[in-house]
């Protein structure tokens, strides 16, 4: 079965401090966090960003289980990165396999990148776990609005995202149903070589496109019938307002950023230049 779990099942609807934050605040904090994570160039910085992430996760009431499950898709890429670093960084050898030489510096470097990736994925997935898709697009529209004078179609982008988010589950469900309907007629989506497999997708894709186009038509009609004519002069049902909680979160973020910058200046990179 096609499972949309990764995309749709993302939002984790419990009430918490993090859930209650303004989506704009959460988006900005996530962006700042990402930058800071890359500014930090040693393990002391990780202590700071790590504590910040753990605090945020605790406050969000999202079970660790869910976050760790979210790491599963990147296990491969992470191991790959770590192994690459382990063998490609010059330095004192730990062991050698043929022409490959694992080094201590590579080990440290690989660990460093790995930890960074883990913190990055865990923290950023917190954004979509604690913010409903609707809130997210509302927040994004607001953040992009100042750029509309420079020609960024803020409202249109947000509307497209809203529609896409609305229809992804529907289309996945439909794909699942059509696939099963064709399997009931003996279709086989799983075996065969590349060519056979892509051919076997025709009975799935044709009906799926037909229905997607029909839905798009219907939706356009329904929007027009309700006098939709773009973003100009449109007001919101849910107005976004910054609260004290949001300022508090911003404050914490600034403190964290400052500390990371301090560790960078004070301690320098994890593998000091010229040390190897």
């Amino acid at each position: 079965m096609i499972s949309g779990g990764a995309i749709i099942g993302q939002y984790y609807p419990v009430g918490s401090f993090v859930h209650s934050l303004d989506p704009r605040a959460k988006i900005l904090i996530s962006v700042i966090f990402m930058i800071v994570l890359f500014v930090g160039n040693n393990f002391y910085a990780f202590a700071v960003t790590g504590v910040f992430a753990v605090l945020a996760i605790t406050l969000s009431k999202i079970p660790w289980k869910v976050l760790i499950r979210g790491l599963r898709p990147i296990v491969f890429i992470m191991s790959f990165t770590i192994i690459l670093h382990l063998f490609l960084t010059p330095g004192q050898a730990i062991f050698e396999i043929g022409p490959l030489r694992a080094t201590w510096a590579g080990l440290v470097q690989g660990m460093f990148i790995g930890v960074r990736l883990i913190i990055l994925i865990m923290f950023t997935s917190l954004l979509t776990l604690t913010t409903s898709p609707i809130e997210l697009t509302d927040g994004l529209e607001d953040i992009l609005k100042p750029f509309s004078r420079m020609g960024v179609p803020a409202h249109e982008i947000a509307m497209m995202m809203t529609i896409a988010l609305r229809f992804i589950p529907t289309l996945l469900e439909e794909a699942d149903r059509i696939m099963k309907a064709q399997m009931a007629r003996g279709a086989d989506f799983e075996s065969g070589n590349m060519v056979q497999r892509s051919k076997s997708l025709v009975p799935l894709l044709v009906p799926l496109f037909v229905s997607a186009f029909r839905r798009a038509d219907d939706l356009a009609m329904a929007m027009e019938a309700r006098c939709y004519r773009g973003g100009e002069g449109r007001t919101r049902m849910r107005e976004l307002n910054l609260s004290t909680n949001d300022y508090f979160a911003f404050g914490l973020t600034i403190v964290m950023s400052a500390l990371v910058v301090y560790t960078r200046v004070r301690f320098g990179p994890v593998i000091p230049r010229g040390a190897v």
């Binding site: 439909e174 149903r177 059509i178 099963k180 309907a181 064709q182 009931a184 007629r185 025709v202 009975p203 044709v206 009906p207 037909v210 229905s211």
Partner: peptide, 12 residues
């Protein structure tokens, strides 16, 4: 044999 609901949506 199983005929799904709205089977016309599976013709291609």
């Amino acid at each position: 044999g199983l005929v799904f609901q709205y089977p016309e949506q599976q013709v291609f």
